[in-house]
Nucleic acid binder design. Structure first.
Ligand code: FES
Ligand code: FES
Lengths: 141, 141
DNA sequence: CTAAACTTGACTATTTTAGTCAGGTATATA
DNA sequence: TATATACCTGACTAAAATAGTCAAGTTTAG
């Protein structure tokens, strides 16, 4: 049970972005350098963040990315969903009545994993980008 | 972020075991059949559960496994620890002062992942096998 | 015009997972 | 005591997921 780099990097990059975005668009190159994340990989991630309307892009020289919403309105849930980082603890399809073993009923631990999934998702729903900014927001470049 | 089969199977098998173990030792073959888990894989898992004193084994015909503690004293934490299913959300080594990017300080999201780790572990610490048995404990074979 | 920076899609090495396979050893029971 | 049952151990491996890389663009400020 571990978090993938994609989800971790997405959040890391967005926090970095949020710290500077009140001034100028932030280039991925800068984020890459500051956070030590591969530029090519960041591009994949931001492509998804853009599709999900979490960031906006500005092309050309001096371009970069800007947040598309207020930090307070960007929950971890949104970020994770955007980059396909999903919490999956049950093995079966939830909608189906069948169990994870192919049997006709849910397995004896189904409810447990379902509870766990809810437990984790609650955490993600209650955390926003703003919560991660605290008092280390930059006011100048 | 997903649970591996090893952890899932371990809990599933132990719940199955707990439901019958007040009568006779339970053979892995039976668990395998009832829960649809590969016998060879179960053997790997139970080897670890035994090393961690969660179950006891009885060899020979009519042999099998029995719980080594009361269901109430077997927390999910214990089970997961036994089979090396660990919750890993931070990327860095916790003890070290270095960050996950190799830099001298912790990354800007370190505290977040650490909180998440605690959040999940709390769930595991508060759930015991007994909680999973409810009222579907078997009284006869 | 040119360099900075976004855009897109295909490709791949590495690691992890989820097992399988092949040989054991111990013991209850007939 | 013979035998079948069931635990025990370690090595091996196919498949999937991960964490990227690579290549070839397009857009736009200066
Ligand atoms: S996890 Fe849903 S049936 Fe097993
Ligand atoms: S997760 Fe600990 S430093 Fe990044």
């Amino acid at each position: 049970m571990k978090l993938t780099s994609k989800g971790r990097y997405a959040v890391m990059a967005l926090v970095d972005l949020a710290r500077f975005d009140n001034i100028n668009p932030v280039s991925l190159r800068d984020i890459s350098l500051r956070q030590g994340i591969s530029l090519d990989y960041l591009e994949q991630i931001f492509s998804k963040l853009k599709k999900n309307e979490i960031v906006k892009s500005i092309r050309g020289t001096q371009g970069g990315y800007v947040l598309n919403k207020k930090p307070n309105d960007i929950k971890l849930t949104n970020i994770f969903h955007a980059v396909d980082e999903k919490v999956k603890t049950v093995q079966c399809k939830k909608e189906s009545k069948k169990g994870c073993n192919g049997k006709a009923t849910k397995c004896i631990t189904h409810n447990l994993w379902d509870e766990l999934e809810t437990h984790i998702n609650t955490f993600f729903e209650n955390k926003s980008l703003k919560d991660l900014l605290n008092n280390n927001k930059e006011t100048r470049i």
